Simulated assay, not measured.
Amino acid sequence: MTIWYLTDLIGTSVFAISGALSALQKKMYHDLFSIFFVGFVTAIGGGTLRDIIMGAHPIAWIRDPNYLVVIIASVLIAVLCRTWWLGMLRRPLLIFDTLGIGIYTILGMQKALAHGVNEWAAILLGLISALFGGVIRDTLVNDLPLIFDRQLYATPCLAGAILYLAGLALGLDTNLNFVLSAGTITLFRLVAIRKGWSLPRVE
């Protein structure tokens, strides 16, 4: 069990909680299956699309049951602790979503580069890994997907992805490069939320 495998499971858990919280905020308390389904597609949506594009088979969650175990456990935690999540944290969905995009942008890039794609394609596949699950989640709960909003969402992912490639070019330690790049995405996104930063509107 490598550090990257554990990190992948942590990212899966974070996104599953993000999806479940999104469903809970939409008052879907009465339907546990709906909450699980939103958490499930949020957790695996981006990675599944990335692997389909690369032709990487079998897809991780189909091959390894631990992903489903983690998703089920994470959704149950979100449901059982819903009063705490939704009462004590002002914006729990954004917090978990931000952690998820930081982890999955870089994990997605690593997996893409390991399959021999070029660096620009690796950036795009990293963004797909991080963002597509959230797009599905927001669509299912009838929200405007954050990627289509003016707030900075994909931009922090792009900045972290470029930083990761720069670290590779400089021969930076792999673990340190991951932490710095994923941390940059997370911090950039949180500051953007705090400051209300957004991209200029095209008239």
Rank of each mutant, 00 (worst) to 15 (best):
G55C: 13
G55M: 12
G55E: 10
G55A: 10
A56G: 00
H57F: 14
P58G: 07
P58T: 07
I59E: 00
I59L: 02
A60M: 12
A60Q: 15
A60F: 13
W61I: 06
I62P: 03
R63S: 14
P65V: 04
P65T: 03
P65C: 06
Y67G: 13
L68I: 10
L68E: 06
L68D: 05
L68Y: 06
V69A: 13
V69N: 08
V70P: 06
V70W: 10
I71F: 04
I71P: 02
I71Q: 03
I72Y: 00
I72F: 09
A73L: 14
A73R: 04
A73H: 01
A73M: 08
A73T: 02
S74N: 11
S74Y: 09
V75Q: 00
V75P: 02
L76H: 05
L76G: 05
L76R: 03
I77S: 10
L80H: 09
C81K: 11
C81I: 10
C81A: 13
T83H: 15
T83R: 15
T83C: 12
W84H: 13
W85T: 15
W85V: 15
L86Y: 07
L86H: 12
L86F: 09
G87W: 11
G87P: 08
G87N: 13
M88F: 15
M88V: 15
L89W: 14
L89Q: 15
L89R: 12
R90F: 11
R90L: 12
R90E: 15
R91P: 11
R91T: 15
P92S: 10
P92D: 11
P92Y: 12
P92M: 12
L93I: 11
L93Y: 12
L94W: 13
L94E: 13
L94P: 06
I95G: 09
I95D: 06
I95Q: 09
I95Y: 12
I95K: 08
F96P: 03
F96H: 07
D97K: 03
D97Y: 02
T98G: 11
T98N: 07
L99T: 04
L99N: 05
G100D: 12
G100A: 13
G100M: 11
I101G: 01
I101R: 06
G102S: 09
G102L: 13
G102T: 10
I103G: 01
I103F: 09
I103C: 04
I103L: 14
I103W: 04
Y104P: 06
Y104N: 13
Y104R: 08
T105H: 00
T105Q: 00
T105G: 00
I106Q: 05
I106D: 05
I106M: 03
L107N: 03
L107K: 03
L107P: 02
L107R: 02
G108F: 00
M109E: 04
M109G: 03
M109A: 07
M109R: 07
Q110G: 07
K111T: 06
K111S: 09
L113D: 02
L113M: 08
L113W: 05
